[in-house]
Design a protein around this nucleic acid. Sequence first.
DNA 1: AAATTTATTTAGGCAAACCTAAACTTTAAT
DNA 2: ATTAAAGTTTAGGTTTGCCTAAATAAATTT
Lengths: 219, 219
Amino acid sequence: MQSTAEENYIKAIYKLSGGGTNAVSTTGLSETLQTKPASVSDMLRKLSAKDLVHYVKYHGVQLTEEGQRVALKIIRKHRLWEVFLVQKLHFTWDEVHEVAEQMEHVKSELLIQRLDEFLGHPRIDPHGDPIPTEAGELRQEEQRVLASLAVEQKGVVCRVKDSQPAFLQYLNRVGIQIGTQLQVVDKIPYDNSLEISIDKSKSVILSSDVLEKIFVINP
Amino acid sequence: MQSTAEENYIKAIYKLSGGGTNAVSTTGLSETLQTKPASVSDMLRKLSAKDLVHYVKYHGVQLTEEGQRVALKIIRKHRLWEVFLVQKLHFTWDEVHEVAEQMEHVKSELLIQRLDEFLGHPRIDPHGDPIPTEAGELRQEEQRVLASLAVEQKGVVCRVKDSQPAFLQYLNRVGIQIGTQLQVVDKIPYDNSLEISIDKSKSVILSSDVLEKIFVINP
DNA sequence: AAATTTATTTAGGCAAACCTAAACTTTAAT
DNA sequence: ATTAAAGTTTAGGTTTGCCTAAATAAATTT
Ligand SMILES: [Mn+2]
Ligand SMILES: [Mn+2]
Ligand SMILES: [Mn+2]
Ligand SMILES: [Mn+2]
């Protein structure tokens, strides 16, 4: 069983290594974890002794198979709690992270199974990131940029590339969120804007600028 | 802001003192917290320095006003999470405690407000214990032991005094839960057992032993 | 009232997770 | 190829929360 600190390190290594492939540097970790490089060296020695990472002094770390398994479990918990906070407790995108950062460390297999069921086995979190399965698989859904959809085609919003408040507020106003059903109604060739129907009802015209920042998966 | 360990001590002091009135002993705390008396002495010194407890060496501790406020907040969180686990995730009585013990330490005012709302502002937890209000008030409903009801009288199960798995499983089998409607059908003077109808249907005979462990409030 | 038992505290230590400062490697620049 | 700069580790220290063993206080017996 890992401590909260260990879990945070493992998750950070996973994220910085882009899924476990690349080696991660001590300073990189110290920055994302808000600690000093010396503390990171300390922890890497410990994680290495527990066979959760491959660690070569002065040359960075990588997760072991076991380390990756652990990382995916924590990420699964984090993202499921984020879905809960947004869908059930009406948190907004920007409010969930800090809380999920704490909840991801609650230890109980049953809890996560039941939470997953309660939420209807969601496949993406409120930021559009995929939720690892109970088996620890992270299947990346094929994502297409909204701009690439043809007339009549449908998609579910899964990701937004710009996180500036002004843009997020704009999306909020037109009624677009992660999970929203979209369908292309018409194409305006003049400026490549599209008329899009939102949740099968009202439709809006989105500029090609906006269309390039929104990604969808198949419904 | 208190650490998880401090919060567990404060909650234990609150519980052992029966709501903050009586002084609590070092050994008492060490037993409920599964630590050694020496560790308790240590922590009491710290809590005293933070003005969360009144501590007189060799003569026990009590919570200060501030300590009581903190205790009630933690208890509120614990019990709300228990309600969530039972009502939304279908945990049973005996499964919730360990998980709630962890969740009660998650820090977020907004989270608890929203959780309370989501659950419909429940007044008692799955063990029948009252849930402190947001203002930190604990209004106790009048409770009677099931053994004291006269023939024909009704009550709603609000509390069970024994939390051993064997006992909880027994109640499960006969169909008694927190919230269950009971009515005394008949009294058997020979051994003070009662015939009780459960949820207006089937009836069972409960021994005086069991009757002493079940509490009801007015329907 | 003294002696004994029980409860509690103090002293000294340990592990986890952090820190600063100094030493050491690696990388980049001259 | 040296030297300088940047990155990393080691050494030594702190705080938190626990421990054991020894000392001390309180309660109980005799
Ligand atoms: Mn975290
Ligand atoms: Mn997320
Ligand atoms: Mn707890
Ligand atoms: Mn409870």
